[in-house]
Each structure stands twice: as C-alpha cells, then as structure tokens.
Design a protein around this nucleic acid. Structure first.
Lengths: 353, 353
DNA sequence: TTGTAGGCGTTATCAG
DNA sequence: CTGATAACGCCTACAA
C-alpha cells in the first residue's frame, strides 16, 4: 500500500508538504496542493491509521463495552452510537461482557492499548471501575457511561428515567383499581433494575398499599427467569392481579407462565414490561411497557463523547432521557375479588370495561 | 503508560531481550527471563498494539461488516463471531451498512488502514466486491463471507441451506393439503432471499402446483414490508391458504395483516417464516419457522478466519449449515374451500383441528 | 511557504 | 544467548 513518501515523490514535493496538505496544518500554495491532491486521488491513498495513531497517541476507534448484544435492548443502543460515530469518521470496537466482571476488566485493559479516542461503557454491575476509568481519562481517552452508573465515577453519563417510568407504570395499574400488585425485578446488583423497583415501591407507598414480601421477586433479565418467577407468583394465594416486570423479556416469560396456568391476560391478571421492545407489540395480548429510547441513548452517549474528544467539554454532563409508558392490551382493571361477598362491586367495575 | 524501554531499563536487560521474552522469538536464559517477567508483572505492562500493528502490518482486530445490528437475526451472528474472536485474543470492529452499497465500500476502504487480521463480511447485495476483497487478501488480511456470496469471489464462506430450508417448509404445507400457496420473498438482489424463493418454487413444481404471478411478492426484510405485502395477498381472490415468508420479520408483519383482516391463523391461513427468531415462539399463534443457526454462523466464520490467520489454510473452504424446520401453531391444514358446496367436507376436516 | 529530521513503541536483523 | 540498530508510516517542530 502506498504511503506518504510515495506521494511526495510522485508529486515532487517533500514529505512534510504532503502531511500539511492532508492535515491542513500549514498553508500550502495552490499549485503544490493541487499536485499532491491529484496524486492522492490517482493512487487512492489512505493514511495508515496505525502509524497515525501511534504518533498522535489517539485513533479514530471508539470502544463500546456492553453486556450482551444478544439481549434485544442493546442493538438499538449500539446502532445509535455507531451511526453517530460513523458520520464523524469514527469506528466502533464492540465488546460483550456477559455481565462478567472479569471479562469487563479484560476488555478495559486491552482496549486501551489501541488508544481509542473514546470509550462507551454500559457497566455490568455496580462494581468499582473508577481507577481504571480514571486512567482512561488521564490517558486522553474520553469516557461516557450509559444506563448504569459505576461506583465512584462521576463523568459524562446518559441514563433513562427508570424510577419515574416504573412509577408511572405502577400508578397506571393503581388507577385501574388494582390493589394486589406484585413485581419481578431485575438482578439486585444492577442499578437500573434497582431504580425501577424503587419507582414501583414509591407508587405503592403513595397509594398506601402494602407489598407482601412474597409479592416481590428478583429475576435475571431474561425470559426463563420471568417464566420461573412468574409461575411462583401465580401460585400464591391471594394471587396478584397485576405484575410489573423488570424488563420485557421477564414480562414475556411471565406471559407464558400466565398462559400455561390457564389464566387470561388482562382479564385475570395485568402485566406491564419495561423497554418497549419491538416484540412487545406483537405478543398476545400486546404487552404494555415503559419505552426506553435505546437508539437515542446510544446516539446521545456518542455525542457527549465526541464533545469531549473535540475538547468542547466543560464539566461532566449527565443526561436523563425520559421513559414513556405505552399502554397496550396486557393491562386492564382487576378481576372480581375472589370472595363472593364483594361480587356486586366487582361487576359494577366490570361494566366499565 | 510504560513501554518496553522502561522494562528493559528496570530489568537491566536490552530492549531486544524484552521483545524476545514477550514474543518467545528467541531463547532467553531463565535468569533474564524471570527478571523481565517480574518487571512486567510489577508495572502491569501491556504492549502498545498500535506500535506492534504498525511494525507487523497486522493487528488483533477483526472487521465485521453486517447490514444492520438492529435486525434481530444479526446479533446472534455477531455474538458467535465475537466469542470465538475473544477467546483467541481478537477484537471485533463492527460496521453497519444498512444494505447501502456506498457505505459498504466506505467501510471496506477505511477498515484496511487499521490492518485488521481479518474481515468477516455479510455482503449487502450481489454487487461485485471482488477487486476490493482481493486487495485485502493480498494485503495479508484474511476474508470470510457469511450468508451471501458476493459476485466473483470464491474464498472462505459460511452459508445456511436456504433453498433446502424453504423447500422443506413448502413441502410441509403441501403435505398438509394446501394447494393455494403464496410467498413473500425478500429483496431480489439478496442471494439468500433468492435461494429461499427457489426452494419454494421447486417444491411447488415438484407437486405440480401452479404459482399465479400475483401469489409471489417481494418485500424488504422487515415487518412493515410483510404487513403491506401480506395485506395485498389477503385481498386476492382466491385468497391463498398458506404463505411462506422470506424471513420472520416479514411473517410477523403478515401475521398482523391477518389479524387486522379478521382472519384466523392457522384456521384460515397458514404461515411459515424463516430465521426462527426468539420472538417466533412468543407470537400468537407461535410462528412456524425455518431455523437458521445464527450463533454458529458467526462462530464458524470466525474459525475459518483464524485458520487463515494461522496459515493453516489450504484451499478455500465453504461451509453450509443446515436449516431446520420448526413446526408451530401457525400452520395447519387448509380451510374448507370458499364455495358453499364443499361445506360438509370442510366441517369434517375442521373436526380434526 | 516549503523541506528536513527526530521519534512514537515495536519487531527483526545481525553482529558479538 | 544477548544487545545494538534500523525500519514500520506518520506528525511536528524547527530550520531554510
């Protein structure tokens, strides 16, 4: 592959002039400039990014560390980031951690040796990464965290209003008349999962409704977890009339458990998910969910990052994107109470449906 | 960040010796070796991959160019590739093309300047990329194509048995007694889409069933395309009793069209998709589909790639993975013919359902 | 405005 | 077996 020396020779100029043309780092006369550009176009020259990166101690790569691209929430985030990166000439190095802390550390350590311009991190857990992230920042690599704030770190950050979203979802169920609400939260060490549960509990407290311990379960953020924990909730007596799921995958598993238990959704039980995956509109019944703007999450993160790279940054900036409740047919008013005595009231309510 | 010079100094050896220890490129005495390794461990040294890459004209990066990570089929492929790469010390640079040829070219051109060890390409269309791919190969970058064979190229390659899969799906519908089969294929310039249609047509031909031109439609590989084309098919008279979709997203859109037309699946119409996305099991009714082993597709591609990188390659190798038909409730026997005269027969058959 | 030279951190070659 | 030394391709003072 051709290099700058070849160009200099063919254009009859010096190496430095070629560099100056390429980087616009000093004024070059029209004549020479044209000669250089012509040669560049003729042999389809492209600068060697490794040499450039070695010299500048910075490349046009941006590391992106996420839990798992296979989790349907993340592709949109990655895509949002990639699009913003691409239009600015940056490329994405994608790393999956599987929420495995040691893998996260491994990626963090190795990525640095490529001197990426920036790093976008969706932390696996609440573990303390501050020393490593600080060392990135000191090394001139911009860092932005998404979704979950790592312990002891306070740089740029983009999140979704998890607590408020879960609060709104719960409030909606309360407004429909539900009094027996349960939740299947996500893993305890994931901050966003925690925030959602917090919103759920806050809504219950505000409505002065008690949460029996058995009504609160924790699950992994996947379907099978939702299925298992859902089945457990459905077996309780009294059975909850509404369940708030920590994410859509959990809700999907729960939906399956409901179906297999011979129950109907929403007549017997209401379900709300979180994420608003595309699938949510296609299930039976369509799943109500709290929408997370994944694409924007990634896009905004990349913009914060590039702002740092271009030194336009001042103090750290934290962006919180809104979560929007999407009501669909998986929620409805509660069924008539099990005890025969309250039938009349229940029927009155039924008519509203 | 520390470099090899620092290590040499602290260990009281020469730069060359450090390199020899690091790369095992020449025997180093136990004594010196230990001294070097101790220092390395003490200061947590990691080699600068840019410098190494510049020198070796090869890095541990692997470019992966795909149409769109947001299409739910691709995350599994990417993950399969990433896992295989990671365990071998390689990292993935992910590029989305949106099936846009110019974006594909742009990525192809730019990626090379990072001197990746390899390139995994899922071509956007049948466009001729041979010159560019050849130039990669000549530059020492291994190339493997996935899913769709680019024109005029004959290197390593991993595909799925698209034609056979579609054939099996169609055959199954024929076996159930369907005689009015339609298809919504993918874009005409995508070879895998073409192969699936070929399998569909071959099954019809074998069964001596005619395919009215109106029964064959082409769609983009997404839900909205499936919806629009599905609606068009459902409006035909006579209406098809079974539809083979080019992929699951199309099938999902079609399912929505069926529902909105007030028809029942599978009683009124049978549907089979392609890909067997996780969603397929969760729709109502669960969607029959031809399973594509996405994760293995990516994994095998990466293995072929690494085989080339490690120079264990001989002649180009082409792997074809099997596609497996997954029957679910979206398929059933055809409904009674529309004409009133055949009602009795229809009812007899209904009972079987 | 243009050209020259030194060095970024590694690897590879070649004397000792 | 060990240690200088010269590239790899580019950027950037600094000198002309």
């Amino acid at each position: 592959m051709a290099n700058m020396n070849d160009i200099a020779r063919k254009a009859n100029v010096s190496l430095g002039t070629v560099s100056n043309v390429l980087n616009e780092t000093a004024k070059v006369s029209q004549d020479l400039r044209k000669r250089v550009l012509d040669v560049i176009a003729a042999i389809d020259y492209q600068p060697n990014q490794l040499a450039r990166g070695l010299r500048r101690v910075k490349t046009y790569m941006i590391g992106m560390i996420i839990p798992d691209i296979t989790n349907p929430f993340f592709p949109a985030v990655v895509r949002g980031a990639e699009d913003a990166a691409f239009t600015n000439g940056y490329r994405l190095v994608l790393c999956n951690t599987d929420n495995d802390h040691s893998k996260e550390i491994a990626h963090l350590n190795e990525l640095r040796t490529y001197h990426p311009a920036g790093l976008i991190l969706i932390p696996s857990s609440g573990a303390d990464l501050s020393s490593r992230l600080d060392s990135y920042a000191k090394g001139g690599t911009a860092v932005v965290c998404i979704d979950r704030q790592p312990h002891g770190w306070s740089g740029d950050m983009v999140t979704v209003a998890n607590e408020e979203g879960a609060f709104a979802a719960t409030q909606h169920l309360l407004d429909l008349g539900h009094k027996q609400l349960a939740a299947i939260g996500g893993p305890a060490d994931i901050l966003s999962a925690e925030a959602r549960l917090k919103g759920f509990k806050r809504a219950l407290r505000k409505a002065k409704i008690k949460l029996p311990p058995a009504y609160l379960r924790r699950s992994t953020f996947d379907q099978s977890g939702g299925y298992a924990n859902g089945a457990a909730l459905l077996a309780l007596n009294p059975r909850p009339t509404a369940i708030v799921a920590g994410n859509d995958l959990i809700a999907l598993g729960l939906l399956r458990a409901v179906r297999e238990a011979g129950l109907r959704c929403p007549q017997d039980i209401s379900i709300i998910g979180f994420d608003n995956l595309e699938i949510a509109q296609l299930t039976d019944p369509p799943l109500a969910s709290v929408h997370q703007p994944g694409y924007q999450l990634g896009g905004q993160a990349m913009e914060l990052l590039l702002r740092q790279v271009k030194k336009q940054s001042k103090e750290p900036k934290q962006i919180v994107l809104e979560a929007e409740l999407k009501i669909r047919q998986s929620v409805g008013p509660p069924p008539a109470p099990a005890s025969p005595r309250s039938r009349p009231a229940a029927q009155a309510r039924r008519k509203k449906t």
